[in-house]
Design a protein around this nucleic acid. Sequence first.
DNA 1: CTTGACCTTCCCATAGTGGGAATCTTTATG
DNA 2: CATAAAGATTCCCACTATGGGAAGGTCAAG
Lengths: 136, 136
Amino acid sequence: MQSDLYNIGEAANASGISAKMIRHYEDVGLIPKASRTLAGYRTYNDKNVHTLRFIRHARDLGFSVKQIGNLLSLWSDQARSSSQVKSMAMEHIEMLNLKIHELHAMKLELTRLVNCCHGDTRPDCPILDNLAQNKV
Amino acid sequence: MQSDLYNIGEAANASGISAKMIRHYEDVGLIPKASRTLAGYRTYNDKNVHTLRFIRHARDLGFSVKQIGNLLSLWSDQARSSSQVKSMAMEHIEMLNLKIHELHAMKLELTRLVNCCHGDTRPDCPILDNLAQNKV
DNA sequence: CTTGACCTTCCCATAGTGGGAATCTTTATG
DNA sequence: CATAAAGATTCCCACTATGGGAAGGTCAAG
């Protein structure tokens, strides 16, 4: 593990987070302000890139920036208890479940409507009829 | 079906779309500009409210504003073919499927990690370890 | 006539991501 | 060395959909 320095483009490539987003994460305080070269270019070392990867993995799991901030705190906190992390994860699973169920309900209803619609050149359409219904 | 006039609050109650959003939909051109009283209050008739309900139902099914615009066009187009509506609906089902699968994959992975984590007072945590991994 | 419940417009905020402009720096090439 | 291309900087704007809130006008009831 050598400590090369990366500029933002290299850090972006190495982490899978776009340069735009790296700057953004710095702006909103998710990551500390990067050190700069004399010319003002941001520089990143291996540890920084490692953190960026951590962030990307968390993002890939659907955690919000705020949640990722908490995960980063726990990550760097040697006194953490794994139960803290676990409960964050379980909470997030619940949110995912909620969204999945919402989308699934939409899909079911829409599929039902699609199956009712003959889908030919005639204008009458159960899908539109359903949307136009005065149901609650 | 009488043709009472509603102000925006009444139209909001009758349609289930907030007054804020009704104004917004007018701003972005989803619905035509409402007529006004002398004092400048927006007024809505039964037909307008019917349209707002249509919009709410479509929104409840997860259609975007742009898609709802297309649905409204088709709704008012007597020369439409039901196949146009059906293909829009099927396209949307595909989008829903995509999102559901994404969320589901997140949930599976996260559930796997949670099941690996003892979740006690000790700091070592497979969830954090996984996030910190240098995987691709 | 006052008061409270509405309405109006306008600006700001959310979360996450990107586009693009104007400008500067670094690097490569002739 | 001069110049051009690539890449960095900041700043502003965009998207989706929704809401909060302020400052001010209006309407109905007491």
